[in-house]
Design a protein around this nucleic acid. Structure first.
Lengths: 151, 151
DNA sequence: CCTGAAATCCATCATTT
DNA sequence: AAATGATGGATTTCAGG
């Protein structure tokens, strides 16, 4: 992992379908050299894969919410994960500091669908209480760029 | 936008670098037909683009937080967005219902970096008060799949 | 709106420095 | 580790149904 790898990652974050030759032009390497590095980054897990960015609105997933989840007693993160994973509306979940045990990011088709998703979430045995915050508008959403400079 | 488009999107979400020929085999179309549909989906904005999924840990961005932002008086979402956009640690931001005006998703290299990012955030004139929740572990994080069924 | 063919370009491997 | 050159496969354009 060095500067060249980071620049390759930047290229792929910007456009995952760009050719190795094009990336090579940017970073100053030949196509096979770029491929070897990308393979290695995938191998080591720095790159998890490549995905399409879709507009949730266009697909009918325009409603979302953040839900603070409070569990009963002490529960292992893995157990929370296991319960959340089958729910298709859960797009992300994190254990957190503070009063809540986890924050769950939900995406649904509309308010009604969000409500049913919330009901299912609250129906999980491990969950004691939830506090939900409905998203009114997406202000900003961007991929984590590898070249941001701490400080 | 029909079922075939959705299945093409599913393929690209699963792997943005798969070839048009491979997608065609899955959805029962020739490679040129797939390409034209993908071009149209990009054109109409249903597909925003293609990106690499990177492991934040591996890049040294292992610390994150969700911050409730409370603003002074009534502030247009666009103004909030304009203030947040220059901060590189802000990976997402939403206006929300409830007491807070916005939720900001921060990603930083470590706790110290997170602290400085928070200070910068709290230094914005429009911001009155913040409540931050530090992420302890990522339980789940997945792309929005286009084929989840409401209900 | 699709298929099928043709030209170009790319990915990928073996070889060389 | 990277450049180079060869080849098999992909992308992309175009003609035609």
């Amino acid at each position: 992992m060095n500067t060249i790898d980071q620049r390759i990652i930047s290229c792929l974050v910007a456009n995952a379908r760009s050719s190795y030759a094009d990336i090579g032009k940017v970073v100053g390497l030949s196509a096979p050299a770029v491929k070897r590095r990308v393979d290695r980054l995938l191998e080591t897990g720095v790159l998890r894969g490549f995905t399409a960015v879709v507009d949730p609105e266009a697909l009918g997933w325009g409603t979302e919410a953040f839900v603070e989840v409070h569990c009963q007693g002490n529960i292992a993160p893995a157990r929370i994960r296991a319960r959340l994973e089958p729910l298709p509306e859960v797009v992300a979940a994190y254990t957190v500091s503070g009063a809540a045990d986890a924050i769950v990011h939900l995406r649904a088709a509309d308010i009604h669908h969000l409500e049913t998703a919330l009901e299912r979430l609250r129906g999980l045995e491990i969950i004691d209480r939830t506090v939900s915050t409905v998203v009114l508008s997406r202000l900003l959403e961007r991929p984590p760029t590898p070249d941001r400079n701490p400080e």
